[in-house]
Design a protein around this nucleic acid. Structure first.
Length: 663
RNA sequence: GCCCAUGUGGCUCAGGGGUAGAGCACACCCUUGGUAAGGGUGAGGUCGUGAGUUCGAGUCUCACCAUGGGCUCCA
């Protein structure tokens, strides 16, 4: 016997012990809701999405979620149909395929003899508006599956036919058809809006290629991305956010702030300018401090290895197409795509006893991976990079402690960087794997127990582990709510065996260590890209390439400025003097655009009093501070890696802001 | 790798078959001015690379390279 639970748009629910009739559902949720949200359903139109699920006792529970016709998902889904209708009204020879709702909108894939152009998008937008004005009724019909196949076959819609045939294979006998207006209809499970006019804010966004069912062996289709919202205002807001995201694009920030560049003679390989290198080095300094604190030792290992190494590690078998090769003295060499095999060689170089474990070794080695041309992107997907990579070789009974220590270290790193919004995913054994299940049991147990001992929430990705061991992935969620995978910890049973690693135990017998691969920032390159987007380029002072810029009111104060710059540099503060004979306002504008944390404005007053006036990034001004007071507070801010300024904005801040806003 | 788009001085971009433009940046000159752009003068590119069409090609065609948006891939 199966029971049915109806979930209403307001998340309240009612459970039936039998399959309720439509009328029963309508009655049970009250006449108003029935009229507003189920009006169509009473007339045979489904406004439901059903999910079948099993209860713990094995009985089936059918959950029917009733979507309000006003729900965004419904509007977007209907908008996808609207877009398909528009495209076919403009170009009747174009065939439709599928058009699902995605996170921020929807897309529809078309089988078109030619590609769409940006001008086509304008045409489609216009046509959609035209259709909306007709405000046609949306009607659901249920067709016997054979009728549907015949109808779509006649129309030449081979992709639809394929979809329906798949439904038939699954045992469906009827399919839902939604009609918009007199002639246009599409296969759909629903639900949809009741009248097209209910869609008020819809817009095409971009064109892309896509494969039928995401398989590159299948025909290439033309995808149009679009989005829809409840009203114009929400749509405008979304489009505005897209613009904001563009402004935060780390590729643009990198150029504007003079951090890094690319050149076509070294595709997908960043050049870090002095300022970018400062950030890079500061991050390495941070990691090195933490390495010391958490008992890691740093090592340096070769860049190129005889390919025999990769035969032994298994990378030749599985990773060859991502590696760079070179022939020297008739021997085949490869640039290292990861540090681990080299670390195994170094592990072996000295005989290990159980007293030597855990052996934690960190390596900022440069890696090269050939990434397919279509996947490279700014700093976040490059062909040469450097990880904050380390490997921990330990005994099985040390595993849980090492894992917990890693997470603690990661948490310390992320909170230092103002990135406390992250999620942990535990990926467990996949179907294809190596090693005994007992080993998997203890490794997965160690991971889970470590997380539990720290009282950290985590999610399980069952079956998502690597073939050589389970892993943790840490997803950082940035200021724009976008997830990024940065940190990772992977248990590896494979490499220790492939390299026949061992240690002598207390029992004087040979044992095999477990190997942990772990990174916190991921790669420095990728991290810098993500962090720039997260902070929109407003780095904390300790990471800022230029921490203080000295701006003179006239050239008369230049010597004073140069003297202060020297003093600051002697204190380890990165300072610059803008020596150009420009107006103060001009120099401030530039410093502001460069997002420099502190501007010291120096005029005759400051020279006379031996003081500085500090302009904060926010525009507030602290007048006539003694240099010592300024530099001491700043040093503290940098030393403690503060995220926010240590300076208290002046009391007249409000007045200043009022002045600004009235301008 | 696949589809589409783009590739003009350091940057952002306009132009579009008859031998290159703007703003910013840069250099020099004038101005020495207190919290987001003072004024003038000048230097700088053969228009991603190669081939083709043409009397003539940044401008049209093709190939390649790079970049961008997607797809796919991601030990």
């Amino acid at each position: 016997m199966s029971s049915v639970r109806i979930v209403l748009p307001d998340n309240s629910s009612k459970t039936f012990d039998h399959e309720p009739t439509v009328l029963e559902v309508a009655q049970s949720i009250g006449p108003r809701l029935a009229k507003d949200t189920l009006g169509g359903q009473i007339n045979g139109e489904s406004e439901v999405v059903d999910l079948r699920t099993k209860l713990p006792d094995g009985t089936k529970l059918k959950i029917i979620t009733i979507k309000s016709p006003e729900s965004l998902e419904v509007i977007r889904h209907s908008s996808a149909h609207l877009m398909a209708q528009a495209v076919q009204e403009i170009w009747p020879d174009i065939k439709v395929t599928i058009g699902p709702v995605i996170e921020n909108g929807f897309f529809y894939d078309f089988d078109s003899p030619r590609s769409f152009t940006p001008e086509d998008l304008e045409l489609i937008d216009k046509k959609m508006q035209e259709i909306l004005k007709r405000d046609e009724e949306v009607v659901r019909e249920d067709w016997p599956i054979q009728t549907a196949i015949e109808t779509f076959s006649k129309m030449g819609e081979r992709f639809k036919v394929e979809l329906i045939e798949d439904l038939a294979k699954k045992g469906e006998t009827m399919v839902g058809i939604y009609r918009q207006g007199k002639t246009w209809f599409d296969l759909c499970r629903g639900p949809h809006v009741q009248r097209m006019g209910q869609i008020s804010a819809v817009k095409t966004l971009s064109i892309a290629g896509a494969y039928w069912r995401g398989d590159e062996k299948n025909p290439q289709l033309q995808r149009i991305y679009a989005t829809a919202f409840n009203d114009r205002k929400e749509l405008e807001e979304y489009l505005h956010n897209l613009e904001e995201a563009k402004k935060r694009d780390h590729r643009k920030l990198g150029k504007d702030l003079g951090l890094f560049y690319f050149h076509q003679l070294a595709p997908a390989s960043p050049f870090f300018a002095p300022k970018g290198t400062t950030i890079y080095n500061e991050l390495q300094n941070l990691m090195r401090e933490l390495y010391k604190k958490y008992g890691y030792q740093e090592i340096i290992t070769p860049q190129m290895y005889d390919v025999d190494l990769y035969h032994q590690s298994g990378h030749w078998e599985n990773y060859r197409e991502n590696m760079y090769f070179s022939k020297v003295d008739e021997r085949d060499f490869s640039m290292k795509p990861m540090n681990c095999p080299g670390h195994c060689l170094l592990y072996q170089a000295e005989r290990k006893s159980y007293r030597d474990l855990p052996w934690r070794v960190a390596d900022f080695g440069r890696l090269h991976r050939y990434e397919r041309s279509g996947v490279i992107h700014g700093l976040t997907r490059v062909r040469t990079f450097c990880q904050d990579d380390a490997h921990i070789f330990c005994r099985m009974d040390q595993l849980q402690h090492e894992i917990a220590q890693f997470i603690t270290m990661l948490n310390e790193t992320y909170s230092t960087l103002g990135m406390s919004n992250y999620q942990i995913f535990l990926s467990t054994r996949p179907a294809k794997r190596m090693g005994d299940d007992s080993v998997w049991d203890s490794a997965e147990g160690a991971l889970e127990n470590a997380l539990k001992s720290l009282h950290l929430p985590y999610k399980i990705n069952a079956g998502d582990g690597a073939f050589y061991g389970p892993k943790l992935d840490i997803m950082f969620v940035d200021a724009l709510k976008r997830p990024w995978q940065l940190g990772t910890l992977q248990c590896d049973f494979n490499l220790p065996r492939a390299f026949e690693l061992g240690y002598v135990g207390e029992d004087n017998k040979e044992h095999r260590p477990v190997m942990l691969h772990r990174a916190i920032l991921g790669s420095l390159e990728r991290f810098i890209g993500v962090y720039l987007e997260h902070t929109a380029g407003h780095l904390p002072t300790w990471l800022s390439p230029v921490q203080v810029v000295l701006l003179t009111v006239t050239d008369r104060q230049l010597d004073y400025a140069r003297g202060l710059k020297k003093k600051l540099e002697d204190l380890g503060i990165r300072a610059e003097v803008d020596e150009r004979s420009e107006k103060l306002g001009y120099k401030i504008r530039e410093a502001q655009l460069q997002k420099i944390p502190y501007m010291l404005t120096l005029g005759d007053k400051e020279v006379a009093g031996g003081t500085v006036s500090v302009r904060l990034k926010g525009g507030q001004v602290l007048e006539a501070l003694s240099f010592e007071s300024f530099s001491e507070q700043l040093q503290k801010e940098i030393r403690e890696r503060r995220l926010e300024t240590v300076f208290t904005p002046p009391a007249n801040k409000l007045n200043q802001e009022a002045k600004h806003s009235s301008l």
